[in-house]
Amino acid sequence: MGTLRLQADHPVHVPPRDISDRIAYGFTRFLRFIADRFFARRYGHRAVVLETVAAVPGMVGGLLQHLKSLRLIKDDNGWIRQLLDEAENERMHLMTFIEIAKPSMFERVVICMTQLVFYNLYFFIYLLSPKTAHRIVGYFEEEAVYSYSEYLNGIDKGTYENVPAPALAIRYWNLPADARLRDVVIAVRADEAGHRDVNHAFADQLCGVR
């Protein structure tokens, strides 16, 4: 894991505590390995494909928590809204990086295939073990924070052009009219850190950790 942080008091990594956590962490590292081999340091294109995956868990979790609340006739304690907001936020990340990276037709096909496979896989993981599902997302977001930190470093070093921010991103994050890619990456990274902390907290609640 990287050591770059948004705030000094934000933990970068939650160590696996049990077999469920180790499965979640191993699954995340496996996907990270594939992403590293496929995209290398093409972070804009990497973000396009990975954000379509990142937008799935919140919608799946929100749906299944909604159905659970209906079955049990019990309040969800705010989980449904939190998860659906997360899905919407990740979708906006995708829309933003599509404007920046301009994915090829091949990458658009990869997006469709990745979403098809991951949606079904994550749906069954959440049915079997919501705690594992949320821990997976927590680890996904740890990796996202690290990747966007590397992207930011590359922009600062001049490796990636600090292009103007898309109008969509300026409206969504209420950025200055002259905002650049660097401002967008900082905003997205902050979102991912929030999702990381929320999903690790949800996983902890489900296994009784305080």
Rank of each mutant, 00 (worst) to 15 (best):
E99N: 12
K74V: 04
I73R: 09
Q65W: 08
R135P: 01
I73Q: 06
V14A: 07
V109M: 09
N89E: 13
A47T: 14
M59R: 09
A177T: 15
T28Y: 04
S69T: 13
L175R: 02
V185A: 01
A167M: 08
S149Y: 00
L128Q: 09
V48E: 04
Y25R: 14
K68C: 04
L31K: 09
L83R: 01
Y25P: 01
F123P: 00
I100T: 03
A40I: 09
F124I: 11
N89V: 06
I170C: 01
Y148M: 05
Y160M: 12
V137K: 00
S104V: 06
L121Y: 15
Q205E: 11
Y25D: 10
R189C: 13
K74H: 06
D75V: 15
A169G: 01
A187S: 15
H10W: 10
V12G: 04
Y160V: 14
A8Y: 08
F97I: 02
K131L: 08
I111Y: 05
Y139C: 02
I34Y: 08
I73N: 08
L64S: 02
M92I: 11
Q82T: 12
Y160W: 14
G61N: 05
G78R: 03
H10F: 12
H200I: 04
S20F: 05
A55C: 13
H66V: 02
D183S: 12
I155F: 05
N174K: 15
T28Q: 13
T114W: 05
Q115H: 14
R71L: 10
T3Y: 14
A169E: 01
R29Q: 15
A101Q: 08
N77T: 11
F33V: 09
L175M: 11
I155Y: 00
P176I: 11
A54L: 03
L128T: 09
R22K: 11
L64V: 04
F123T: 03
Y25F: 11
W173H: 11
Y119S: 07
V117P: 02
Y172R: 06
I19L: 13
R182G: 06
R189F: 06
N162F: 01
Y126N: 03
M59E: 07
